[in-house]
Structures are given as C-alpha cells and as structure tokens.
Amino acid sequence: MYGVIAEISRWAIPFAIFFILLIASLKGLQVFEIFVEGASEGFATAIKTIPYLVAMLVAINIFRASGAMAIIFKLLSPLLNNFGFPAEVLTHALMRPLSGSAALGIATNLISTHGPDSFIGQLVSTMQGSTDTTFYVLALYFGSVGVTKYRYAIVVGLAADLTTLIASVYIVNKIFG
C-alpha cells in the first residue's frame, strides 16, 4: 500500500503537466503565451506575502528568544503530564503550529537522542507528520490576498491541532506503547 502511494506521489506532477498541456494543445490553445501570462503574476503574488510573513515571524522569533515561550511551557507541562504526555515532546507540540523549521529541528533532535523506534521517537514522528504550521499558513494565505481580519480561523486551526496532538498520543500509546 505504502509503495503504491509513494509511486503515485512520484508521478503526480509530471503527469499533471503532461495532461494539462496535452488537453490544452488539443483544444488549439497558445500554451506558451498563456503560461507566460499566468506566470507573470507570480512575482506580485509572492511579494505581497512579505509584510504578513515578516509580522508573524518577528513575533514568533521574539516569543522564542526572550524566554517567554519557556514560561508558557512550564505553566502547561504539569497539566499535560496528567494525560501521559512525555515532557520531552511538549516543546515540539507547542512549537509545531508556530514554526515548521524549528519543530522539525526539535523532532530530529529527539529522534537522534531517543532513537526513531523508541516511544518518544514514534510519537514525535507522528506529531511532526500529522499537523501543519497553522500560524504560518494563515499569515501566508490571508496575506496573499490582503485579508487582515481572520475571524475564527485561528480558533478552528488550533482546535484541529490540539485534537491531532491528543489523537497522536492516544494512537502511539495504543500501538507502540
């Protein structure tokens, strides 16, 4: 099963390019012209996200470097320990929605210290793979169209992240615990 999915992933993009160009050319479209026209908007779209990403990443970086994040961790860790949640993995759990690269760094470090097949190794692998960098995605996607009022999007994103976290602990305990 895993092999099949991996194979689909490998072929998906080359196939999409081939298929789109094939159909377009059969319809007699000027593919080169249309491509260039679409691609010329890429620069403006990417540049538009700069202020939003800068704002978000500045706040996250300050939060980490100042030690403020460590204080929040200390407040939360006794609470989470009650749920059978190992303290080592907590930093990763809280970092995951904020910074993808920092969370990956923590996961890599835990895997090399505890071993990939240890309980902590399996748990942090599951957590890394199952959630996204919610704050970054929101800043990027809303930023690209100039939306500054996110309404309830953060609440929804964090509710999903929290559920994923609890589900990861549950299933890893059940299967590898």
């Binding site: 789109i20 377009a24 319809k27 479209l29 491509f35 026209e37 679409g38 691609a39 010329s40 620069f43």
Partner: peptide
C-alpha cells in the same frame, strides 16, 4: 508560484 500560476492558467483556459 510563477511556475504553477502559469500552468494553472493553461488548465483553466482548457476548462
């Protein structure tokens, strides 16, 4: 983004 916007414009034009 430039690459995919170009390709998606073709996909959209082709319906």
């Amino acid at each position: 983004i430039a690459f995919w916007l170009g390709l998606m414009r073709i996909a959209e034009a082709a319906g």
